[in-house]
Design a protein around this nucleic acid. Structure first.
Lengths: 231, 231
DNA sequence: CAGTGTTAGTGTAAATATTCAACTAAGTTA
DNA sequence: TAACTTAGTTGAATATTTACACTAACACTG
C-alpha cells in the first residue's frame, strides 16, 4: 500500500446552486446563460469557484454566489450532494458541491433589480426545465427536485417559498402545488399546529371580499422543521 | 463582477468514510491511526485522496478506500455531506466528501484478515467514540450518527448491519439497539411486511432449543427502503 | 339592510391504526 | 411427558385519521 499524503490530488471544484422560487407558473428555478467555454451559450445552474481568500467555508461560497446572482442574502440554504467524476467537465476531473436555496416570494420581487443580467427564472415541468443544460446540471436539477418533493411530505419546506407573511390557505395551496394533490383542510391545519413552526402575526389579517384570514410567519426563516408523520 | 473561469480554485480534496458495523458492544465505527502529519498518531476516519488516474468518480474513490481498509467490496454506501473550509486542515483550504458505509456482520467476520493493519473497530458511545479525532472528524462522525439514527425510524437501514440471513427477532433487536427503546413485536412484524424489503429464505430456519424461526434476507443488499410511517 | 357569494375556520361520525397483552406453536432439555 | 424458551398470531381497548358537513365573517348587490 502506498501513501499519497504528499501527492495531494487537486480537482477543479465549484459550488453550484439550484435556486427555487414560486412564480405564477408554479415552482421555478434560476438559470444562467454561460458566457465562456465549455458549454458557452448553454443554460446552467448558477455557480462559481470557491474563492480561497474570500470564502471561509463552502456555505459562505454558496451564499456569495447566491447574492451575486439574486441580491438575496438570507435564504433557506441546504447542501444537496457532491458529484465528482472524470467525465463531467471536459477540462478534467472535477467536483461540484450542489446547494439548494429557497427564496421567499417577496424577496424575489424586491430584489428584481439586483438580479444578475444573465439570470432568468424557468418554470419546472416534470423532472426538469425542458431545456438541455450544461455539464451534468440537468441531472443535478433532477436530484434537487427529488429532494424538495420528498421533503414537502414531512417538513415545513413550502413555507420558505411564500412571502414573509401568509395565510394558512396560501400555505396549503403551496403544499398542494408541490405535491400535486389536494389536502384536507382540517387535517392540514392540525398538522401545522402540531409541527409548531408558525406564529400568528398579531392584529394582521388578510382582507378580501370574504371572511378575513389570520396571517402567519415562520418562527425561523432559516431552518426547516421536520414533522413526526407525513402531511 | 469578475469572471473566474480561468482562475480555477483547486482545494485539497479527500474522500472520508464513516464505516459502521455491529460488534458485541453495539454499533461500532472503523478508525485508523494516522501515520503522518498533520495529526500524526491520532485516530481518524479512514479516507484518502481521489486518484485522478484510477477513480472514475467520487463513489469509486470511496469504494476503493473501503476495500483497502476492510477488504469488503459490496457494502451499503451513501454520501453524507461535504465539508470544506479554510481552517479544517492546517495545510490549507480543504474539502472532505464524507460517505457512510454499513457492513454486514458476516462480511466483517470473513474479511478480518484483509482488514488494514492500522484500522480498528471502536464502539459508539453517545454522540461519538470517546476519543479525540484528527481534523474535524469528531464532528463528521457526529453528523453520520445523526443521519443513521434518523433513518432507523423510517427505513430498512438496520437490515444492512446484520448477516446476509437473519430472523425477524434478530432484526427487531437491532432496531431496538439503534433506537434505544423496545418495540412491540406484532407492530414490528406488520411494518416489515408492509415495507416489503425482506424475502424469506425458503427451507431455512434458525434452530435452537426452542421453536425454529424463519430466516430472511434483504431483497436488495445495496439500497435502503423508506417506510410510509415511522416504525 | 336583507340576501348572496366566497373564503376562513371548526366539529363530528365512521374508518383505520396503534397498543398492550394474552394466546397458540414448535422445538429442546430434563 | 412436563417444563422451558422463543416464534409467531390474535383480539379488545384506545387513539388517530379521514371525509365531509357545518358555522363564521366579511364584501357586494339590489
Amino acid at each position: 500500500m502506498t501513501t499519497h499524503d504528499n501527492d495531494a490530488f487537486k480537482p477543479i471544484a465549484t459550488v453550484d446552486l439550484a435556486i427555487f422560487s414560486l412564480s405564477p407558473a408554479g415552482l421555478s428555478v434560476l438559470l444562467v446563460r454561460r458566457a465562456n467555454a465549455p458549454f458557452a451559450g448553454d443554460r446552467a445552474l448558477p455557480g462559481g469557484w470557491v474563492h480561497i481568500d474570500e470564502d471561509a467555508d463552502l456555505e459562505a461560497a454558496a451564499r456569495r454566489v447566491l447574492k451575486e446572482k439574486t441580491g438575496v442574502e438570507t435564504p433557506y440554504l441546504e447542501q444537496l450532494q457532491t458529484t465528482g467524476s472524470r467525465s463531467r467537465d471536459p477540462r478534467g476531473w472535477s467536483i461540484s458541491i450542489v446547494y439548494i436555496a429557497l427564496l421567499s416570494a417577496d424577496a424575489v420581487a424586491k430584489r428584481q433589480d439586483l438580479m444578475a443580467e444573465e439570470a432568468e427564472w424557468r418554470p419546472i415541468e416534470g423532472e426538469g426545465v425542458g431545456l438541455s443544460l450544461a455539464f451534468d446540471h440537468a441531472s443535478l436539477l433532477k436530484e434537487a427536485l427529488a429532494r424538495i418533493r420528498g421533503k414537502v411530505e414531512y417538513s415545513s419546506l413550502p413555507g420558505h417559498l411564500l412571502p414573509v407573511r401568509f395565510t394558512l390557505s396560501e400555505l396549503q395551496s403551496v403544499y398542494e402545488t408541490l405535491l400535486g394533490r389536494k389536502l384536507d383542510k382540517s387535517a392540514f391545519r392540525k398538522r401545522m399546529a402540531e409541527a409548531d413552526f408558525l406564529e400568528p402575526v398579531e392584529g394582521e389579517m388578510r382582507r378580501a371580499s370574504n371572511r378575513p384570514a389570520q396571517m402567519f410567519r415562520l418562527k425561523d426563516a432559516q431552518s426547516l422543521v421536520l414533522f413526526d408523520r407525513r402531511i
